[in-house]
Write a protein that binds this DNA or RNA. Structure first.
Lengths: 150, 150
DNA sequence: CAAAAAGTGGGAAATTGTGGGAAAACATGG
DNA sequence: CCATGTTTTCCCACAATTTCCCACTTTTTG
């Protein structure tokens, strides 16, 4: 179960070293085999391969005659790329995915339960500001969140 | 049950020593394992690990296709970081969380029942002023508070 | 006032992050 | 189909950071 935030850097070759605190659990859950794909919010999603397998099944089971489904399949399935963790605990991000998420140097890795999100740092901080403002403006909380006492 | 307010200082490495009066109850409730995350008011929330567990479960059970849910998951789960109390009764605050809450040196720790809030001192004092002003301006009491006598 | 407890600072070992070179694989053009 | 140039992969070595201690100062307590 992944959670927490990490600032990290891509090197000139587009490699990114995984935070030490996740190494064991990544090794345990997928033996270093990750699947990376894109998200509509212009970040990347990083799944342990077996986790991705589940999502992939679900996606492929949907009726592809539906436009919205088809769109999602193209985005998620279409960009899903397997990446192996190397001997120095790094992964190499494929150029097309780097470009999609505007990743050049400063990045942010966010634990989100069964996966990570990987953001360009600047983008992440702008979005976070926006979310916080939104959250403070909201007078009415959606029903799903009402019972959540934090 | 945590309550009360404490002024305290971060050292140059970002460490903060926990007030003596909470030590026993922190030790009892989580054996020194705390989870720290962010709040939309730009402070940090400090939970004993088992307390956080409950919230985490609730958060992850929500449907992440919902925008508002996704936002909350990114903020709360995304920043949740486990911190161990060290041999000198200190915790090390991870740089991304320190930055988020503008914590440099002077901080305020506030007991809030099942958790603590940790504020930058200056921010805390400004906010407190503002809340008091707001409270005095309001003529009508919100429904949730109508029956409260203090 | 003495003794204990709490708070603070900082050094050194261990771990982690980073850069880059050389070998291998791949692509391109003749 | 080979030769050449480019990209990718693998590996090693160094730099930076983090963690773990220890020791000193300050405050509290009896």
């Amino acid at each position: 179960m992944f959670q927490g935030i990490n600032d990290l850097n891509l090197d000139a070759k587009g490699r990114m070293s995984l935070p030490a605190r996740y190494r064991d659990s990544i090794q345990a859950s997928c033996e270093g085999s990750l699947v990376i794909t894109v998200d509509v919010d212009r970040c990347l999603l990083v799944y342990p391969a077996p986790e991705w397998q589940v999502i992939q099944q679900k996606l492929m089971a949907l009726p592809s005659i539906n436009k919205q489904v088809r769109r999602l399949q193209r985005l998620l399935l279409g960009h899903a790329t397997e990446c192996e963790v190397d001997a120095n605990h790094r992964i190499l991000l494929p150029p097309p995915l780097r470009n999609f998420a505007n990743l050049t140097k400063h990045a942010v890795l966010i634990g989100q339960g069964n996966k990570f999100e990987l953001w360009d740092q600047e983008t992440w901080e702008k979005m976070r500001e926006r979310w916080i403002k939104e959250e403070n403006k909201l007078s009415d909380i959606s029903e799903a969140l009402e019972s959540l006492s934090i």
